[in-house]
Amino acid sequence: MTEYKLVVVGAGGVGKSALTIQLIQNHFVDEYDPTIEDSYRKQVVIDGETCLLDILDTAGQEEYSAMRDQYMRTGEGFLCVFAINNTKSFEDIHHYREQIKRVKDSEDVPMVLVGNKCDLPSRTVDTKQAQDLARSYGIPFIETSAKTRQGVDDAFYTLVREIRKHKEKMSKDGKKKKKKSKTKCVIM
C-alpha cells in the first residue's frame, strides 16, 4: 500500500485542523484551538488504489514558523489553505509557496490551493482571484467548507493525484537520464 505524506499549511484560523478532522473523523470542530502540530493517518481508496494518507496539520501562528522547514522537508505534497473571508490569509499563500519551493529546492512541488469556509456569506476573496492565482502557479484550486464537508475529500484526493503525477514524471525523467548515460565512448 502506497503511503502519501501530505502537509496542510496556511495562516492561523483558516480551518486547516477543521478540514483535516472532517476528512479523518467526519465531524466539524467549530471551536478554535490553535494547533502546534498534529499528525493523522487514514486509509482510503483513490482511483481504485488503496493508500495510506499521513497528514500533518501544522501551526499557522507566526511564533511556530521555525518548525516549518522541518515538516516541509518531509512532506510530499501540500494543501495551501486560505479562508475566503480573510484576504490576508490569501496573500500569505505566496509566502508559504515560496518557502516550500526553497526548502524542497524545487520549482515543481505537488500543491493544491484550497479556499476554505465557502459556506460563509462574508467572502472577501473572489473565486476568480483564487483561480487566477492557482493557474499562475500551475496547481489545482478547490473551494471547501469544513463545516458542510463540501470539497473536503476532493481537496485531499486531488493532492494525492498531483503527487502521483509528480512521481510518474520524475521516474520518466530518471529513465531518460539513465538511457543517456548508457551511451559509451570508444577510443581507438
Rank of each mutant, 00 (worst) to 15 (best):
S39A: 07
I24Q: 13
K5V: 00
V29G: 14
C51L: 04
L56C: 15
G15F: 00
L52D: 14
K5P: 05
Q43N: 09
V44C: 12
H27N: 12
Y4L: 06
E31V: 10
P34V: 09
F28A: 09
C51N: 09
D54E: 15
G60P: 14
Y32F: 12
V7K: 02
V45I: 12
P34Y: 03
E31P: 10
E63R: 05
V9E: 00
D47G: 07
E62P: 11
G15M: 00
G60L: 02
A59Q: 14
K16M: 02
I24N: 15
G15T: 00
L23N: 15
I46T: 02
V7A: 06
L23Y: 11
L53M: 07
T35A: 11
K5T: 01
Q22D: 13
D38Y: 09
V29M: 13
T58R: 06
E63K: 05
G13M: 14
T20C: 07
D38T: 05
G12C: 06
D54L: 01
S39H: 11
V44I: 06
I24G: 15
L52R: 12
S39G: 10
D54N: 09
L19K: 04
V8P: 00
V29P: 07
T35Q: 05
L52Y: 13
Q43G: 07
T20S: 13
E3D: 08
V45M: 06
G48V: 02
G15W: 00
D30M: 03
E63N: 13
E31C: 09
Q22P: 15
H27D: 09
I55C: 11
V9W: 03
E3Q: 08
V7P: 00
V14K: 01
Q25E: 07
A11M: 09
T58F: 04
E37M: 02
Q43R: 10
L53H: 09
E62M: 12
D57Y: 13
A18K: 10
Y32S: 11
G48H: 06
Y32C: 13
R41F: 03
E62G: 11
H27E: 11
G13T: 07
T2Y: 02
L6R: 01
I24Y: 06
D33F: 07
G12D: 08
V29A: 13
V44Q: 10
G13N: 08
G12E: 09
E62V: 09
Y32G: 13
K42Y: 04
D33T: 09
L53G: 04
A59L: 03
A59F: 06
Q25W: 02
I21Y: 15
V7G: 02
V44S: 10
I24C: 13
S39M: 08
E49R: 07
D54R: 13
Q22Y: 02
